[in-house]
Design a protein around this nucleic acid. Structure first.
Length: 555
DNA sequence: CCTCCTTTGAAGTCG
DNA sequence: CGACTTCAAAGGAGG
């Protein structure tokens, strides 16, 4: 775990994790190699297409599913017809309907990952990452392009057309930078144009991939310097995702997104860095600097509503009196924790889901996204994991002293166990399956939420069965009975899964997620993939089962 | 205006 | 070391 931290700059520069990838690139090459990016896209797109197609006749899907994750195919629109109708309408209408699931990723180019991962892990799931289905659904537009403008943006929220602009056939920049490089850049950009804190700023050497201080020129595009005018850097995914547009790390209201942030940098990079650590957040440029001196997107001005602030964020001293601490808090911007893979995914996909479903409630959207997440193929998830990993690295470099602990307990909310929610009914936002939701639900019936004790019971054998497995959200229902049912299914599911995956992966424990070298992680069991792919059997079960354990939410 | 809801994953705390 | 908590995003909804 400590790798990141301990590694300090090294990590970035020569991230153990990263390197392995590269090294192994050989293999990767063989596989999907760089081209895979497109391949993925195509695949994704095709999957989407299938999804839509399948909607009507979902059940079948076996053929296609074999290759691709059961993802979307199974969405059931039953629920709100409106949504369904809406979706249909859109499809007919614009044709876009949905963008590729991963609009952004292609940028990332983590081919290796996919490949490698695939090799090791993919056994189980015969997904052919590299080869997209013939479906031509998409012309190779840049992924971003695909995203339906309407879809994404429809939302008023999308402040700036930035994303639209994204549509421009952005090509990756010729100059390929190390993925991390961008990250670094970003930091500078915003913050201190002039003076990056030497100690902090990790410099990445283009060649080695080691972080180096970006030149202003490089940065500028992305990060408009002035705080006021700051172009925020869209999240890596963010720019893809129009609606939010926000940088991963909170964006100030006024923040404006640079239209083409990505252009400036390599896509991959941009994605990594930009997102989270977007400048805009960086509040006061001057004072806003993190102790480390590097402004980061994650930094939120102290005033930020969320956190009352606590002293912790900063690295340094904690030995101050409470009062002092307080002051410091005020001064120091709140540094947010880096987004994890799922969060990244959510950011990217939320707009689409919103567009498709017309739902706006995040809770509901998140449920859908959760299902979809599970339905993603390993490769797909791997992309996000990788992205998340890089972000963490970047974050650690930027804020070497920062630790999650800093933010710990700041938000007051104490998650209470999900039972007593008096306030809102716990509605299942997703009624069984929403039009939007993806098939994931299928295996969806797995366990309840992670935290829930039941889960544990359910998967005794697989402790490791981390959330992902349990994942299936279905359990949203609060009702105990429903849960019980779910659990049963889930248990079964888990066990089967465990069996399958376990062999080598077994250990999926969360451990993996930590500092394990990426490659290793992948091999073992990527934190992520634990469950990603539902077995056919599981799917069958799901299909069979009524997703809707849940009762309809009382609206 | 604040918190909840909801998701997964990462990382923290606690026993 | 395992179990449990908190936070990250997001935006409607409830208090």
């Amino acid at each position: 775990m400590p790798q990141l931290q301990s590694g300090g700059g090294d990590d970035l520069g020569a991230p153990d994790e990263l390197i392995p990838f590269q090294d192994e690139g050989d293999e990767q090459d063989k596989g999907a190699g760089r081209g895979s990016a497109h391949g993925d896209l195509d695949e994704l797109k095709s999957s989407l297409v299938n999804e839509s197609e399948n909607r009507s006749g979902s059940a079948s899907g076996s053929d296609s599913e074999a290759e691709r994750p059961p993802q979307q195919p199974r969405e059931s629109f039953q629920k709100p017809r409106d949504y369904l109708a809406e979706v249909v309408r859109r499809q007919q209408d614009g044709g876009f309907f949905k963008g590729p699931p991963y609009p952004s990723y292609p940028f990332l180019m983590i081919p290796e990952l996919g490949t490698e991962y695939h090799q090791h892990i993919g056994d189980t799931a015969p997904r052919t990452p590299s080869r997209p289905p013939p479906r031509a659904y998409l012309q190779m537009k840049w992924p971003l392009l695909d995203v339906p403008a309407g879809a994404t943006l429809k939302d008023t929220r999308s402040p700036s057309p930035a994303h639209l602009s994204n549509k421009v056939p952005v090509v990756q920049h010729p100059h390929h930078m190390h993925p991390l490089t961008p990250l670094i850049t970003y930091s500078n950009d915003h913050f201190s144009p002039g003076s990056p804190p030497s100690h902090l700023s990790p410099e990445i050497d283009p060649k080695t991939g080691i972080p180096r201080p970006p030149h202003p020129s490089e940065l500028s595009p992305y990060y408009p310097l002035s705080p006021g005018a700051i172009g925020q850097i869209p999240h890596p995914l963010g720019w893809l995702v129009p609606q939010q547009g926000q940088p991963v790390y909170s964006i100030p209201p006024g923040g404006f997104r640079h239209p083409y942030p990505a252009l400036a940098m390599n896509a991959s990079m941009s994605s990594l860095m930009s997102s989270r650590f977007s400048p805009h957040m960086v509040p006061p440029s001057a004072h806003g600097l993190h102790p480390s001196g590097i402004p980061h997107p994650t930094i939120v001005s102290p005033i930020v509503k969320q956190e009352p602030t606590q002293p912790s964020m900063s690295p340094g001293g904690n030995s101050k009196s409470p009062i002092t601490v307080k002051k410091e808090e005020e001064k120091k911007p709140h540094i947010k924790k880096p987004l994890n893979a799922f969060m990244l995914y959510m950011k990217e996909m939320r707009a689409k889901v919103v567009a498709e479903c017309t739902l706006k409630e995040s809770a509901a959207i998140n449920q859908i996204l959760g299902r979809r997440w599970h339905s993603l193929s390993r490769e797909e998830q791997a992309k996000y994991y990788e992205l998340a990993r890089k972000e963490r690295q970047l974050h650690s470099q930027l804020y070497p002293t920062w630790s999650a602990r800093d933010n710990y307990g700041k938000k007051k909310k104490r998650k209470r166990e999900k039972q007593p929610q008096h306030k809102k009914l716990c509605v299942q936002y997703l009624p069984t399956e929403k039009p939007c939701d993806s098939p994931a639900s299928s295996h969806g019936s797995m366990l309840d939420s992670p935290a829930t004790p039941s889960t544990a019971l359910a998967s005794p054998a697989a402790p490791a069965a981390t959330h992902s497995e349990q994942a299936q959200p279905l359990s949203l229902t609060t009702k105990p009975e429903a849960r019980a049912q779910l659990s049963l299914h889930s248990a079964a599911f888990l066990s089967s899964k465990a069996a399958s995956s376990s062999s080598s992966l077994t250990s999926q424990s969360p451990l993996l997620s930590r500092p394990i070298p990426f490659t290793t992680a992948l091999l073992t069991s990527p934190p992520s993939f634990p469950t990603a792919i539902p077995s056919q059997a599981a799917l069958a079960v799901l299909q069979a089962q009524p997703l809707s354990l849940v009762t309809k939410p009382a609206e």
